[in-house]
Write a protein that binds this DNA or RNA. Sequence first.
DNA 1: ATGACTGATGTCAGATCCTGACACAAGGGT
DNA 2: ACCCTTGTGTCAGGATCTGACATCAGTCAT
Lengths: 195, 195
Amino acid sequence: MRMPRWPADSRERLATAALDLFTEHGYGAVTIDQIADRAGVTARTFFRQFQDKEEVLFADDDLLLPALLETIAEPSGPVDAGTLMERALVALAERMQPAHDLLRRRQAIIDTDVALSGRELAKQARWEAAISSALTARGFRADDASLLAAIGFAVFRRQLHAWIADASADPTPLDERIRAALPSLRTILDATTAR
Amino acid sequence: MRMPRWPADSRERLATAALDLFTEHGYGAVTIDQIADRAGVTARTFFRQFQDKEEVLFADDDLLLPALLETIAEPSGPVDAGTLMERALVALAERMQPAHDLLRRRQAIIDTDVALSGRELAKQARWEAAISSALTARGFRADDASLLAAIGFAVFRRQLHAWIADASADPTPLDERIRAALPSLRTILDATTAR
DNA sequence: ATGACTGATGTCAGATCCTGACACAAGGGT
DNA sequence: ACCCTTGTGTCAGGATCTGACATCAGTCAT
């Protein structure tokens, strides 16, 4: 075990400082130097922690993809598309659940900037691709798998945004929303795969 | 009628120069100055024509959204969701049809850069939103409309990518592909709206 | 015709983003 | 003690993008 002498949490301090400053002044009006100053480091350290200015808002998302892949790869008996999809989407939901406030603040910033919105969509596209290949691995035709994943993820995205936008004190949990939305998805899946 | 003394096509020359240079050296390796030089103008003119470096690849897409909105807004008798969706998606397809080669070259560049992929998704999200609000205007519940648009657009995106990737001399036209893919979409729509 | 106006461009300064190279300091392992 | 790793700072510099101002050729009203 290493015990670095630095506060060692510069990454978190940078992320916090960035979110605060973006919220207060707007994404475009905040410079890297300002973020670094508030975190007590230099701009160079910021760029060592985050690929670029945008990435500081999406860094947490990268933890979700490996988790998603693990969940999907978990050995289990043969499952149908609906079950696998539910497992994957609920896994995502549960990981996001604790961060509701943070996600709300983040989304408010993302919605103000086209490039940020694009970045968000690109990240989600990777999750979608992961689910798609998981379906393929389970024996679905690649064509069907990518279509099913696209539709399933469209449903997920809708519930996610609704959940994030819900400012009430005790919003319906995301995983619950996902599970509630799945029956209609399952209807779609059946209709599609039956052909 | 005004007849500006300049070639007056600096915008097109910039777009052509950019696409050529990106193809030849890669998006990241090309500077704005190089693009401007080849087009016979300065970098400042580039930024007056295009919001930023990325936008030069997506400028044509902006012509599609107004066209899409017009098509959707065209007065006509009452139509069901499937018909309206088909009309919108086929309208998009027909507009893209003549630019197959150009779109292919462009896509090859977009696929090399995450930010560009994000930008593409953001543009498509705007089209999707347009279709969604068109459905809402036709009397669908906002919730259903956005879901239907999401699913319909997922189908469109798949056909679009397949068509773009098709390098054969005489690829199946995009609008034909869309029409062929719609029956399964219609099945989905029926299953969803019937509830 | 002439002078004002418009529009596309050029020039220049400058802020900001981002990277590469090198130095330094502190802790761990040998 | 010595080296190695790690996280950071410093510095130089290229690239992106913007604001302010100048220029110059047509156009239009008088």
